[in-house]
C-alpha cells in the first residue's frame, strides 16, 4: 500500500547563505495492508520528515513514494489532494482548524469531504468523541479553546473518522492518560483489522510492542557526510 524507494531530502536555506542541508538519503520502506510499521530513531533523525514526505507536506528531492496508485513525489497537487481526501490520513501532533467551528463538525469533516451523509457523519464523530472521553457538552464548542490533551484526542478522532486505507500517525499516544492511550491503540488495531496500512511514530515502547509489526530505524537514512 505504501512503497518508498531511494528517497532523499535536502533543505536549501536561500536567506542564510543558500546553505544546503542534506537530511535524508536512500530511504526505503514498504507497508502492506493491515500492517503497522513504526519509525524509530533519536529526535532529529528524520522520522517526522519522512512522514511529512509521505503525506506530500515536504517535497522529496528524489526517489519514489507510492501510496496506492499515486507517486506522491511526482504527483500534481490535485492528485495529492484527492489521495488525502480518500486514501491517506494523517494524525499530526497539532490540531489546525478554522476557529469557532464546533468540535463535532471538526471531527465529521473528513467524512463530509468524501460525500458521506451529514447525519451519519455526525453520528460517527459523536461515537469517536465518546470513546475518546470528550464530554458531550464540549462538542458544540471550538476545540481551539481546549486543553492540549483534549485537542490531541479531537485530532485523533478526526484522523480515524474516515476509514483511510493508509494512515500516518505522529505520536498519537503522547500526552494521553492510560485509558485514552488504550482507546487510541484499540483504534489502531481496528484500523489494521480492516486492512489499513499504517506508519507510526511512537515514543512509547509498550505501545509499539502492542500495535506495530515491524520497526524501521530512520538513522540508517541519515546522509553519511552530514
Amino acid at each position: 500500500m505504501i512503497e518508498i524507494e531511494n528517497v532523499s531530502k535536502t533543505f536549501t536555506l536561500h536567506n542564510q547563505g543558500s546553505a544546503v542541508i542534506p537530511v535524508m538519503e536512500g530511504a526505503k520502506l514498504s507497508v502492506q495492508p493491515g500492517e503497522c510499521v513504526a519509525l524509530i530513531g533519536a529526535s532529529g533523525a528524520g522520522k517526522s520528515t519522512l512522514m511529512r514526505m509521505i503525506y506530500g507536506n515536504y517535497l522529496a528531492a528524489s526517489g519514489r513514494i507510492v501510496v496506492g496508485e499515486v507517486d506522491v513525489a511526482q504527483a500534481a497537487p490535485r492528485e495529492i489532494l484527492t489521495l488525502r481526501r480518500h486514501t491517506l490520513g494523517y494524525v499530526s501532533q497539532f490540531l489546525r482548524v478554522v476557529p469557532r467551528v464546533p468540535t463535532l463538525e471538526v471531527v465529521a469533516e473528513p467524512l463530509l469531504m468524501v460525500g458521506e451523509p451529514r447525519q451519519a457523519s455526525l453520528a460517527r464523530a459523536g461515537e469517536l468523541l465518546t470513546r475518546l472521553n470528550i464530554p458531550e457538552r464540549l462538542w458544540g464548542l471550538s476545540p481551539t479553546t481546549f486543553s492540549g490533551g483534549e485537542q490531541q484526542r479531537v485530532n485523533i478522532a478526526r484522523g480515524f473518522a474516515h476509514a483511510y486505507p493508509a494512515l500516518l500517525l505522529d505520536e498519537p499516544t503522547a500526552s494521553l492518560d492510560a485509558q485514552n492511550r488504550d482507546t487510541v491503540l484499540s483504534l489502531v488495531e481496528e484500523a489494521k483489522e480492516r486492512g489499513a496500512a499504517i506508519v507510526g511514530i511512537f515514543h512509547d515502547e509498550a505501545a509499539r510492542q502492542r500495535v506495530c509489526d515491524r520497526e524501521i530505524d530512520v538513522t540508517a537514512f541519515t546522509p553519511v557526510a552530514a
Binding site: F11, T12, L13, H14, N15, R52, G56, N57, Y58, L59, P77, I80, L81
Partner: peptide
Amino acid sequence: ETGLTDQVLDDPQHGYTQL
C-alpha cells in the same frame, strides 16, 4: 512558486517564499 498550500508554507523552495 506554486504547489499544495501546506507544502509551500511548510517546505518553501524559493528564497522569497522562505522569507
